[in-house]
């Protein structure tokens, strides 16, 4: 998943003509929005090439970190597309996604980015037209808001420290427990 977000940055910048071409990332649920994207394709519907679709098993799997990460890597707008309320394949994944998006909007505002750059949409599997419409809508919105202030800025250096294995784990290793049980059997 992180790889698919990361590849954003390496893609060629817009058309090269100098006109602003927004980058839009869409996290699409396999069961509805992604299927709707397929359908849009089969129906030969046009939607802006600015939208990069990231397939996720369920919109509920989308983490706030991913959304922020997409912006860090130069996205001008991001949206999450899930099933209609009540239609989630995993019952309430889309409700979870609504909450995640609302939270990430707050974080964006805190950072100083317009929260409108992030959105959640319900797109049922049969709604190819709606998929294309939302893609246009979000691209237009990004165009109106202009380039993200993070775009084409030097990325901030960052890494996760990998510590040696915890010498004092909060629970004894499971293996030890098995061995004890085995010894009891003996």
């Amino acid at each position: 998943m992180k790889d698919s977000i990361a590849c954003l940055g390496t893609e060629t910048e817009g058309t090269g003509s100098g006109a602003f071409e927004p980058k839009v990332v869409a996290f699409c649920c396999t069961y509805c929005a992604y299927t709707a994207a397929d359908l849009a394709g089969a129906m030969r519907l046009e939607y802006p090439p600015n939208v990069r679709v990231v397939q996720v098993l369920c919109s509920g799997k989308v983490e706030a970190e991913w959304l922020l990460r997409a912006f860090e890597e130069g996205a001008d707008a991001v949206y999450v597309a899930g099933c209609a309320l009540g239609d989630c394949h995993f019952l309430e994944g889309n409700r979870q996604a609504l909450r995640t998006v609302a939270y990430a909007k707050r974080l964006l505002a805190e950072v100083g980015l317009e929260p409108e750059r992030l959105e959640f949409f319900h797109i049922p599997a049969s709604a190819g037209t709606l998929f294309a419409q939302r893609a246009r809508e979000m691209t237009d919105r990004a165009r109106r808001l202009g380039p993200s202030p993070l775009r084409s800025k030097q990325a901030v250096e960052s890494r996760k420290l990998v510590l040696p294995p915890d010498p004092h784990p909060p629970l004894p290793p499971a293996q030890l427990g098995r061995r004890i049980r085995e010894s009891e059997e003996l």
Partner: peptide
């Protein structure tokens, strides 16, 4: 992530 975005901007 928030701190990085701030610094980046």
């Amino acid at each position: 992530s928030e701190l990085r975005m701030r610094a980046q901007a």
